[in-house]
Amino acid sequence: MKVLVTGTAGFIGHFTALRLIDMGHEVVGLDSINDYYDINLKYGRLREAGFDVAEIKRQRLIRSKKHPKYQFCQAKLEEGDYLKSLFESENFDAVCNLAAQAGVRHSLEKPQAYVESNIVGFVNILEACRDSGVKNLSYASSSSVYGLNESMPFCTSDSVNHPVSLYAASKKSNELLAHTYAHLFGISCTGLRFFTVYGPWGRPDMAPYIFTKAAFNEETIKVFNHGKMKRDFTYIDDIVDGVVRVIENPCKADKSWDPQSPTASTSSAPYKIYNIGNNEPVELLDFINAVESAVGKKIRKEYTPMQPGDVVATYADVSDMITCLGYKPSTSVKDGMVKTVEWYRSFYNV
């Protein structure tokens, strides 16, 4: 297939594109390379994929020096006219939309960025699929959509009508928009609710990276809710395994779907929602211990109350992905953090 993967200067997008290339697919990557976090890390991922970053110019495709079937372009999802022309010229078989304005806490400060990228940008993706005849769309949602729900584990049949951050609300909006386009235009739309993803090349605004950096630099970390939190930490290789399975197996309409008793995660349209996580939540302090073990240093801790927009726990029920796609995460937190710290040492020369 020829696949458009958005967000390929980002964490999950970078590894998804490389896995697709390794599997023999052709990939066009797209990313705005915004400055939400250190762009040197984003350029580093692109270099790792074989791109000469000096060649990057807005709205122009360049080709990887390592992977002849991999092209990249810097552009924003909000640039609807350019997206339309890209779809027309490249004739994609599938689209995997992993680009978004990320971050729960940041959405409290700059809400407009989330509306523009995550809602307007996603509509542009849907419209481009509609106009060009692309029928296979997968996209990133988030575990944050579960919001105030405290029923564990989180199941895709649960209500997600009580988000606690604008970021979560924007992801819930993506799911609603995707269903509408699946129903009206027959586009196969599969949403992936990601649970805390970590690994080499990970995002510096996420806890695993923050903890690792603090351990090496002997900095103090804030441990929110006094450490009484759980996260379904999921290693990047396990996440990418699930993403590519979804890309290669577009969802179909659920013939048994009952409008008198509607199931939230499927539909009479070609629409599906999956949780994608490790299915084994870890206490925050246990995860910090795994970081300390991998680094070989203790981390100074400041215990603080819960932050606005955060949730106490995340725990993914991934039974649908196991049953439908054979997905099974296999990387322990201990092993995952050893690999993460090895990358960190190498990248930052520490």
Score class of each variant (00 low, 15 high):
T8V: 11
Y114H: 12
A75G: 07
C96R: 08
D35V: 04
D22N: 10
L192E: 09
I221W: 06
R45L: 00
M206C: 05
T234V: 07
L30G: 08
E302Y: 06
Q101Y: 08
P153M: 14
V145C: 12
R231A: 05
Q307S: 05
G186Q: 13
K213L: 07
I187K: 13
P259N: 13
C73D: 02
M337E: 01
Y303R: 01
L41Y: 02
K65M: 08
G29S: 15
A182Y: 02
S142D: 13
E79Q: 15
K66D: 09
G80N: 01
N136C: 09
E342A: 15
R245I: 02
G13C: 11
A9I: 12
P329Q: 14
D238Y: 01
R130C: 12
I299P: 01
V312M: 08
A178R: 02
D237Y: 00
S267F: 14
V123F: 13
A294Y: 04
Y235K: 00
K297Q: 11
A75W: 08
V95N: 12
R300A: 14
G326F: 15
F122T: 02
P68V: 06
F224W: 11
D335L: 01
K172W: 10
D310A: 14
D286C: 12
T180K: 07
P208Y: 03
S143H: 11
A99I: 10
L285D: 09
Q74S: 05
A113S: 14
K213N: 10
V240C: 04
Y70V: 00
M306W: 09
F72A: 07
V145M: 04
V223N: 08
D38H: 02
S319T: 11
M321F: 13
I33R: 09
Y70S: 04
G336R: 00
K298M: 14
A100C: 12
G29D: 11
K57T: 11
G227S: 04
K65Q: 10
Y303G: 03
K252N: 05
T190K: 04
E127W: 09
Q71W: 03
Y303D: 05
K272F: 13
D52I: 05
N349T: 06
P250K: 07
W257Q: 03
I322C: 06
Y274C: 09
I288Q: 00
M206W: 06
L325K: 10
D320T: 13
E48K: 03
A316P: 04
M229H: 00
S293K: 15
N289H: 09
A100G: 05
N174V: 06
L61Q: 08
L325S: 07
P68E: 13
G103M: 07
F224K: 03
N275H: 06
L285E: 12
A207W: 03
H179A: 10
W257G: 08
K339F: 01
P281W: 05
T196A: 13
F194Y: 14
V311I: 15
N124W: 03
S256K: 14
V246S: 12
V341W: 00
P281S: 03
L166N: 15
V123W: 07
H226T: 04
N40Y: 09
G147I: 03
I273Y: 08
A99D: 02
S332K: 11
R300V: 08
D286M: 01
T323S: 12
